[in-house]
Design a protein around this nucleic acid. Structure first.
Length: 298
DNA sequence: TACTCGTGGAA
DNA sequence: TTTCCAAGAGT
């Protein structure tokens, strides 16, 4: 089964969310920034961060001129701070090697830091209107249901997923908007939990035709967060973000006093990721931040 | 392929 | 309260 382009696009014309990175005049770089922020992160949480960010650093070179510390602070608690580091690196490469112009070629984009299969295609499609398949978790779910008649998408497979979506794309003139519409449908109607089938605009759906068979119960154990290294890293970074000057080990210790071994492991991984810097006096700071403080002189 | 990597709101 | 999961990337 396929998806009728006119059917989906007609719905999108009426139901498209008014997201700021979709507005006229938003540059490819600013769209790229939105895609970094939206990786595994809900739209509602990205909105305020993105709005401030693109005003402060409207171009790759402006972003590259900032310190990693400034970028990490602006990222705030958006999560996965390695994304912020990679966005900064990505800006540096584009400013230096691409004359401050975001590439429009998928294969070139994929070589940039923090840009993978999805983001490369999203930028090519949304910023440059290229008719390339854009496959995210929403698209995979919509295709699994409407086309394949299954409740959930299978294990991701870039090659197969791209082929599945490429087969659905209409003519090149409408392909980019079709991809945006497919994502939008998955994000707002054909959702993972409690899909709103009564509001679905699709006239054909293989999953519905089969009587909505449930997904296979073989799900991976729910991801836990409390007590994980991720939480410890988050606590440590939280301390560093909140301090304009370098902090001592003792100040980090209180962020996770329970388990010293785990705390050291988390700190080592942050250093390894380039998200934290160790100074010669054994204090710690966000990379590139001011090293002076009021206590150093007395 | 499977696992790590944050965060917080909704059910 | 616990569970789910939200425009993925890198290894």
């Amino acid at each position: 089964m396929s998806i009728d382009a006119g059917n989906l696009l007609g719905w999108f014309d009426l139901a498209e969310r008014d997201l700021p990175w979709r507005a006229d005049g938003v540059t490819p770089w600013q769209i790229l920034v939105s895609e970094f922020m939206l990786q595994q992160t809900p739209v509602a949480r990205v909105l305020p961060i993105w709005s401030d960010w693109v005003v402060r650093w409207p171009t790759p070179s402006a972003t590259a001129a900032a310190t990693p510390a400034e970028v990490l602070r602006a990222w705030g608690k958006l999560g996965y701070p390695r994304r912020a580091k990679r966005l900064h690196e990505c800006a540096t490469v584009i400013a230096r090697d691409f004359a401050d112009v975001v590439p429009d070629d998928v294969e070139v984009l994929e070589q940039l830091p923090g840009i993978g299969s999805y983001t490369a295609r999203a930028v090519a499609c949304f910023a440059y209107r290229k008719p390339v398949p854009v496959v995210d978790t929403n698209v995979r779910r919509v295709v699994a249901r409407a086309v394949q008649g299954r409740a959930d998408a299978g294990t991701p497979s870039a090659k197969r997923d791209h082929a599945d979506v490429a087969a659905l794309l209409p003519d090149a003139a409408r392909a980019a908007r079709f991809s945006a519409a497919l994502m939008e449908l998955g994000a707002t109607v054909c959702t993972a939990r409690a899909p709103r089938c009564a509001a679905c605009p699709l006239r054909s759906c293989a999953w519905r035709d089969r009587g909505f068979p449930p997904g296979s119960a073989a799900k991976r154990p729910a991801q836990r967060y409390a007590g994980t290294d991720r939480q410890v890293r988050g606590r440590l970074l939280d301390v560093l973000r909140d301090n304009a000057f370098p902090v001592t080990r003792a100040e980090l210790d209180v962020a996770w006093p329970i388990d010293e071994v785990q705390r050291e492991r988390a700190l080592a991984s942050l250093l390894d990721d380039g998200l934290v810097e160790r100074l010669a006096d054994d204090r710690f700071a966000l990379p590139g931040q001011d090293r002076n403080d009021s206590t150093a002189s007395r």
